[in-house]
Design a protein around this nucleic acid. Structure first.
Length: 299
RNA sequence: GGCGCCUUGGCCGAGUGGUUAGGCAUGGGUCUGCAAAACCCAGUACACCGGUUCGACUCCGGUAGGCGCCU
């Protein structure tokens, strides 16, 4: 094949899992998940884990605080290992940032240390947005100009990095475009909105039939990290009566899908492929694309 | 039929005679170790018809719709 790696990005319910499975039928490939929530163990139904084997899925307990920084090297290792075995890594996601991080070399700045994070968070909450931002302005003016004072998360991160002698600013690769680590065919799955909405509604109901409620109940007995708490539906399923929960979850999932479509629009070098048809057909088209395309001249 | 109350932008929801509450949703944008996240920007609504007033979403009258009580 011309391309060494295949990346498939699509919104929830665009049929990524089935497509990935279909692809592995056509070519010797292994699936690497690029999903910030499927990394968790314990919520397979709610996070829509594929029934087929995928890497980097269910690998962390819900108490673990996930991050791209921790995910990226694992993804790189998985991809390289699959390549070394002579197979095609199939990176499938979900989470735009994780997807980019898996396929490109984002060169993330160093991890925050708990101590400095905690300190700056306290500083921000006590001194206020303006004062904290002013502090950043002193330590790293370039970063300060790009960050809004109200953006607590980034002001704090900027401060942490500045303190460590680094900056939030220097970045080689852009978030949406730039070189891939390997020659890569990146396809975006396209499903008309009404069809996607239909699938989301159907899928949500399916979750309840599959027993999300018990799953969520069990999960809530455990310690949940700040990141795990963000899983769509956790709160809804736990607190709302069934019908209301279904409605709320469907709505939130649709909104999430809209957010993912934003990534779809922005990701550079994406080849859009229709996915409102049997996965085998989509898979065949993707394989054909991977075979015929020339090695991607990296932008 | 009578009396009383209510009617605010897609939804929820404050409020005042004259300076666009706010939240959610929506649209656009930002984004590099919390991304199923966080942040920024945008949209001038007051059921309808008259009247009072320099000026009404806010006061008065009527109409329509809703809610409650009464005969």
């Amino acid at each position: 094949m011309a391309e060494e790696v295949i990346g498939v990005f699509g919104p929830t319910a665009s049929g990524k899992s089935d497509l990935a499975a279909a692809l592995t039928e056509l070519i010797p490939a292994e699936v690497v998940s690029a999903d910030a929530m499927q990394v968790y163990d314990g919520l397979p139904i709610l996070t829509n884990r594929s029934p087929h084997p995928e890497r980097l899925v269910g690998m962390w307990p819900l108490s673990h605080r996930a991050s791209v920084g921790e995910y990226a090297p694992l993804a790189h290792a998985a991809i390289d290992e699959i390549l070394a075995a002579g197979r095609t890594p199939l990176v499938v996601g979900g989470t735009g940032l994780y997807f980019r991080a898996a396929l490109a070399e984002l060169e993330l700045p160093p991890a925050p240390t708990p101590v400095s994070r905690e300190r700056w968070e306290r500083f921000y909450d006590e001194a206020g947005a303006m004062a904290t931002h002013a502090r950043l302005e002193e330590l790293d003016p370039a970063a300060a100009t790009r960050i809004h004072p109200n953006d607590r998360r980034r002001v704090i991160r900027g401060l942490e990095l500045a303190e460590a002698g680094r900056s939030l600013v220097p970045r080689r690769e852009s978030l949406f475009g730039g070189a891939w680590r390997h020659p890569t065919l990146v396809v975006g799955l396209e499903v008309p909105k009404p069809e996607l909405d239909r699938r989301i509604a159907e899928r949500t109901r399916g979750m309840f039939e599959a027993g999300v409620e018990e799953e969520v109940r069990a999960a809530l007995d455990l310690e949940l990290s700040a990141t795990a708490q963000k899983v769509i539906g956790l709160r809804e399923v736990a607190t709302l009566p069934r019908e209301e929960a279904i409605e709320a979850l469907t709505g939130r999932t649709r909104r999430y899908a809209a957010y993912q479509r934003k990534w779809l629009r922005r990701l550079e070098g994406l080849v859009m492929v229709a996915a409102d048809r049997p996965p085998e057909e989509t898979a065949a088209e993707i394989v054909a694309l991977a075979r015929t395309r020339e090695r991607l001249p990296r932008p």
